[in-house]
Design a protein around this nucleic acid. Structure first.
Lengths: 357, 357
DNA sequence: GAGAAAGATGAATCCCTGG
DNA sequence: GCCAGGGATTCATCTTTCT
């Protein structure tokens, strides 16, 4: 926990316990398959990613590698966990296909739009200005995963967060450099990207695993956001740089971290509780906001109207001829001259519950 | 040519001649795998894409289908042709992997960012606000494909066009509707998207093939932009709607369609031509813009400097210690007190050539 | 020291013709 | 097929150097 394991990612993953990780973030080799050298129009040389770790003999070799680490990740993932992978068109289609073949279930593909991507120097293609992330659950049936919908929406001017995200590439003081001023890692990811990912799909205290830890962006952001991290990395140089980097990170305070929650995360309140607590009395008449429908509260927490009866939701739906209905907002009670939704009574209960914490 | 073939796309493709198509645009079934029905928060039913043509028994079946139509497309594609496919995360990873397995060569993946995507009604995922296109050549060696780089750049405020494009979804008057006001096709693509694609990767008069013609957006845009189209479609209802739609399209005039070209398209001029036409005399001294290097023009069209000699490009590169150099912009001649690049003399020759036409 | 100018750089599958 | 050679091609941002 909160440490970096040195070694091959599959071997290291196999040494970890089952169902122990909340989120996997993986930035695997892209298998770029670059040809010769590339010069800018000013004749300067482009520093290509030609590291040994990005070389694969064939697509088959890359696929076998991908299958192996994805399977190893799934075993350590909790059933409610999710997995993120980032890639470019060189590799992401293979990763996505294999995820589906292994019965992972894709929740979204996310586009990281770069504000400042490298240009296309020869004018023979569109500027490659984005990378793609895939967000998936370990199987199609997995339902209890964390998605902080309300936080994302609030962070996005109160409209839902979209699948296209805009961030600058990692440069300037954030980019790790060695004593000679050379970049430590050729593909260091921006912290803002990881922060978005962790804020969306983890809760404080969750465990985040990164099987291709590299310069440790995942660890640094996890520590800052009050999440635990586990990193796996083969190369000692990267491990050293990442450890030093993470040691310098100051975690944010608890108050800052409290994830904004929407209705879903609020404690569930049974309609019966309102009766039990005396907020509403059996026999009370409830109506919809326009008084088109009326029903009577029964002692067991159901509503009745003519021959029909059922929960506040079912009866509301049945009377309107719909498949579903939110009874909390549909049904109203009389207070003085005005109608108020019974949701207000639920809020009273919730406030009482909150005081207990 | 400029017609819609009724039938299965692979069978119809197999009846077309080799090397006859400049660009394929394909909008294949997405294999959405939707479970159950989805309602909006107001309980209205979301009209899902649940057509028979979008159903596949398994990923294997979808893959076999994809392989078949991609192979059939490659045979009809010219060696200089390119292929576009659009999809979502449900199918695009499979399409991309198979493209690579078949040794197509990916030029770009393009993100269509939707200005007005459907919201995520359940708040359990990010809003799926984009679709992905892949642009590829038939093989890795294919080099002579059309990419109207200068047009794209000019259309994008004079910076190169990126891989993320922003368009609204197809709606309003553009959306084909039947007599009952119901949409004719569930996934009609916006004409602006096809226009961007055809303006980028075809020339006027080119042949564009769409093996999943649907409501005929490809044909309508091709006709408007002075390109030829070939459509393949199984369902007579779609064919009828597309034919009527295309018949109503007014092609743009020739002048409107001319494509902006860059220096690469200008006629090649040998440096020797400047000497032969008397614009520059043997023995003239040329220097770079900052007068750091100097060389003498020789009668055979080469430059000499000390013991070194060669073409204007080779000598410029050698003197600077670079691999390459554009001699036309590097070397300058004296006119009065100012230095002017010899490129200005090349322009004189090109203007004379243009007058001959 | 301030501001301007010049240099550096980023996951890159990056040319085309003619002999 | 290969090889040689002409000569065309970049955006946003951060750092360093010059005025």
């Amino acid at each position: 926990m909160d440490s970096i394991i040195k070694g091959d990612c599959v071997a290291a993953l196999n040494a970890l316990p089952d169902n122990s990780v909340d989120v996997v973030f993986a930035d695997p080799p892209y298998n770029l398959q670059l040809g010769g050298t590339l010069h800018r129009p000013d004749q300067s040389l482009v520093d290509a990613v030609d590291d040994e770790w990005d070389q694969f003999a064939s697509f088959e070799a890359y696929d076998a590698f991908t299958r192996a680490w994805l399977l190893a990740c799934r075993r350590v993932l909790k059933p409610t966990g999710t997995l993120w992978v980032i890639g470019s068109y060189h590799n992401i289609f293979r990763v996505g296909s294999i995820l589906q073949d292994l019965h992972f279930w894709i929740l979204n593909d996310i586009i990281w739009r770069k504000t400042n991507p490298m240009p296309n120097f020869k004018g023979r293609r569109f500027q490659n200005a984005h990378e793609t992330l895939i967000w998936a659950t370990p199987n199609a049936k997995a339902k209890g995963y964390t998605f902080n919908y309300e936080s994302m929406k609030a962070a996005n001017d109160d409209v839902q967060m979209r699948s296209d995200w805009l961030f600058p590439i990692c440069s300037g003081s954030e980019r790790l450099k060695d004593e000679d001023g050379k970049k430590v890692h050729p593909t260091q990811k921006p912290e803002a990207l990881l922060a978005r990912i962790l804020m969306a799909s983890t809760k404080p205290g969750d465990v985040v695993l990164d099987p291709f830890f590299g310069s440790g962006t995942t660890g640094a952001v996890a520590k800052r956001l009050g999440r635990h991290y586990v990193g796996i990395e083969r190369e000692q140089d990267y491990i050293d740089a990442a450890a030093e980097r993470i040691a310098a990170v100051e975690p944010l305070g608890k108050a800052t971290l409290s994830v904004m929650t929407g209705k879903k995360a609020e404690p569930r309140v049974a309609f019966n509780t309102l009766i039990e607590s005396g907020l509403i009395k059996p026999g009370t008449a409830l109506t919809d906001a326009k008084r088109r429908y009326s029903a009577t509260v029964r002692a067991d927490g159901t509503l009745a109207c003519g021959g029909e009866a059922g929960s506040i939701h079912r009866l509301g739906a049945k009377l309107q001829g719909l498949d579903a209905c939110n009874g909390w907002t549909f049904w109203h009670f009389e207070e003085g001259d005005t109608l108020k939704p019974i949701d207000e009574l639920r809020s009273v209960i919730r406030n009482d519950l909150a005081k207990l914490n």
